[in-house]
Design a binder for these strands. Structure first.
Lengths: 283, 283
DNA sequence: GGCGGCCGATACCGCGCGGGTATCGTTGCG
DNA sequence: CGCAACGATACCCGCGCGGTATCGGCCGCC
């Protein structure tokens, strides 16, 4: 007799209809029927009278319905008391500046709903540190992109985006449907500052050493493309800014959106944040 | 936050030692550690301070310990109320007479412990009906052996015993380590009365039509062997009665110990009995 | 009275989770 | 300094849960 099963039973007992109860529970009808049957066999009592005309509660079912409501209510209050006893909590999340397209909004909403009492601080960082200050202890968890040096970090992949070249809209290559890295070999690519994670730098340069202006933020990248004809890589999937075009590059490996935290961080909020992120992203 | 997890946490919170708590829960330490970690991440609070010197509860852990005890206690009382509301319950179990070796004793103990308020009636039947009166409604569930006509019956196999020939101890074949059915072709085999399930009859006759005295009970079989030199098949695995020998027969398929009930029987006690039986027999 | 539609049950499948064993890292102690 | 204790981690496997497809039985309707 687990709380999950009791939630199922309460839904059925209130709806008196397996199909509607299943819909309310966001599941399909057969596993719900099976769960109720198992509950009956575990308790050794018939809880529901099934018939084509309608489902009704037995005496035992009535009893369990009130008991289950009580139990679930108590459980919810127990959870509230525990989080209250844990004292004020906060979590600092690092994200790459301007990466508003990462679904951070949905994630923030889901997390705040799940842990309303946690103060979530968001720290945006420029492109010089893909881990957003994780190693320096500036953030508890980072929502960012790979790749980077992963030593002592724990990584959970959330999504993978195809990557394209950012070009001026009037660039001769901007009209092409697909490009290869070789098409861009002669261009200047924007570079990240000295000390930037080498794997990160190499990835966004298409695996080669390149020449080009140093940039620290997404805006700077755009400006470099617009004014200097520099090229660079960017994930696909959102509308390019006016005057720019993003053309898929076939031989760029996809860009991995990841959650990262310090391996062994004892803070349970970090784990719960990553779990929520994985759920929101469907990973 | 499920009740199972709370049971785990109570064990750890009381023992303040993962290894001992795991032993108390009859499980190993790693999954217990993991479950507690998941609980912490679900609640968003650290419950335990781990250190090599000892494990202690945090404030949140103290709170959860009392709350969890309370919840588990309430859950147990809810279960009791539900079974009380279901009214008096009884279950009639059919077994083959003289088959005391089937492990029925352990099963009865396990079931009574699980459902103390259920009156379990046991009905022993002779060898003429392998389903022990299940079809006639004389029993709710039968603990018996196959094979038999299974239409409209649900069957769960619990064990399979090798089968041997029952011979007088002074029979020339009694000293052999193994026999084949051909060795017994010329003997008289005991027969079951007219109307006995044909698959049952055929199985215990080694698949052939035979001649021999009609018997209805295990005792009669033994007498027929002792006094008339009749042969017959019996499951191995227990000491043969004085004066008799049981020699394995290579080409007899094993005898299946099964639980049987009427398919679609709505009585949840039947399902729970079968589940208990499967657990006791390790099936 | 036969037929279609509704509803719960059944059959079957794939995957994730909960359990296992083996091993590691840290810490405290002889 | 090595060892023992203890919790964490890594990895594997089997079962349970949730899914889809389908059945069966009981209604109402024409």
């Amino acid at each position: 007799m687990e709380l999950r099963t009791l939630r199922y039973f309460v839904a059925v007992g209130e709806e008196l209809h397996f199909g509607r109860a299943a819909a309310r529970l966001h599941m399909s009808q057969p596993p719900l029927s099976r769960a109720i049957r198992q509950l009956e066999s575990e308790l050794g009592a018939v809880l529901l009278n099934r018939s084509a005309t309608g489902t009704t509660l037995t005496a035992a079912g009535e009893t369990l319905l009130t008991e289950a409501r009580e139990l679930l209510d108590r459980a919810e209050r127990a959870r509230a008391r525990v989080t209250a006893a844990a004292g004020p909590a906060s979590l600092t999340v690092g994200i790459l500046a301007d990466s508003s397209d990462l679904g951070v909004n949905r994630l923030a909403a889901a997390y705040r709903q799940r842990f309303p009492e946690v103060e979530v601080r968001v720290r945006e960082t420029d492109l010089t540190d893909p881990t957003c200050g994780l190693r320096a202890g500036l953030v508890d968890v980072a929502l960012t992109r790979g790749p980077f040096e992963e030593t002592a970090l724990a990584v959970r992949e959330l999504r993978a985006d195809p990557v394209g070249a950012v070009l001026r809209a009037d660039d001769p290559l901007a009209g092409r449907a697909r490009l290869r890295l070789a098409d861009l070999a002669e261009r200047r690519w924007f570079q990240f500052p000295e000390g930037t994670d080498p794997r990160w730098q190499a990835y966004w340069n298409g695996g080669e050493r390149r020449q080009g202006p140093v940039v620290r933020a997404v805006q700077e990248c755009r400006h470099a493309v617009l004014w200097n004809g520099t090229v660079g890589m960017a994930p696909l999937g959102h509308e390019p800014p006016a005057g720019l075009a993003v053309v898929p590059v076939a031989d760029m490996p996809p860009s991995r959106v990841v959650a990262v935290w310090n391996a062994g961080d004892p803070n349970p909020l970090v784990r719960s944040f990553v779990r929520t992120a994985a759920a929101v992203y469907g990973a």
